[in-house]
Amino acid sequence: MSIEMALRSARVRYGPLEALHGVDLPVPAATVTVLLGRNGSGRTTVLRALAGTVPLAAGRVLWRGADVTHLRAHERARRGLCFVPDRRAVHPTLTVAENLGLATRGGDAAPALDAYPELRPLLARRAGTLSGGEQRMLALSRALLAPARVVLVDEPALGLSPAVAARTYALLGALGAAVVLAEQRLPAGLPPGALVHELRRGTVRFSGEAAEARARAGPA
């Protein structure tokens, strides 16, 4: 299994508080990885550290073995990283069509509209007027339209109906990229071979396959 990205002894501080305490985390290529944990566990900070939107206080970020710790977020995006945060993930003053146009750089938005046909009647609407679930579908469209090697999504099913959430996990699993999802609970519908890292208070407490994580959690 080849490793696309990795954190090595990563520490992140927000002022005097340390959010990650020396985290080692591999991100395999063409695999779905789930970061599991409650609010405050550090899962969102791991995504931000990989994306380059927060600096490391110590440790390294590697991309195919190369040290990209000091590479800025927009430079990582140019290399093929797509980050979909849980909030402020769309341009609210632009229309749905304009948001999709930015994601495709003026190209064909059909793959996103085929994946989320709910967006078709909303193309002329400003993104800021959409419901939470509609905004989430629009934000997730970026991952479907941008040819990315690494896709990071914070709470992909936020605001989505169960049916649309299931569709979303299938779409993300079919990308063929290194996909990292931050979740509070282990979602159903993950592809075979999905990996899970459970974080608590800024440290990784469990790593294994999704089936092992479910068995460890016991009955719902």
Rank of each mutant, 00 (worst) to 15 (best):
A127R: 00
R38T: 07
L56W: 12
T168E: 06
G173D: 01
P28D: 11
S9Q: 15
R126W: 12
A139Y: 04
G65E: 05
W63D: 00
R87V: 01
D86L: 01
P28I: 07
L140C: 00
L145H: 06
W63I: 06
T93A: 14
A103N: 06
L113F: 08
P117F: 12
R105D: 12
P191C: 02
R120E: 13
P147C: 08
V23S: 02
L190F: 07
A174P: 13
T69G: 12
G202L: 07
S2R: 15
L172S: 09
V23Y: 07
G15P: 00
A115I: 04
T95E: 02
T168S: 10
L123Y: 08
A157R: 01
P191D: 09
A49V: 08
R78I: 01
T45R: 02
A165G: 05
Q135C: 06
A109M: 00
G107V: 10
L50M: 09
L175M: 09
V90Y: 06
R60K: 08
V12G: 02
V180Q: 00
P162V: 06
S41Q: 02
L138K: 08
A194I: 04
N39Q: 12
V150D: 13
L160F: 12
V32K: 01
L199R: 00
P187M: 05
Y14S: 10
V27T: 01
T168W: 05
L199H: 01
G22L: 10
S141F: 05
P26H: 14
A58C: 00
T31F: 04
N39G: 12
V204M: 05
V68R: 14
R72D: 14
A57H: 09
P92D: 02
L195N: 05
S41W: 05
D108N: 15
H70S: 15
V179D: 03
V179L: 03
R126H: 15
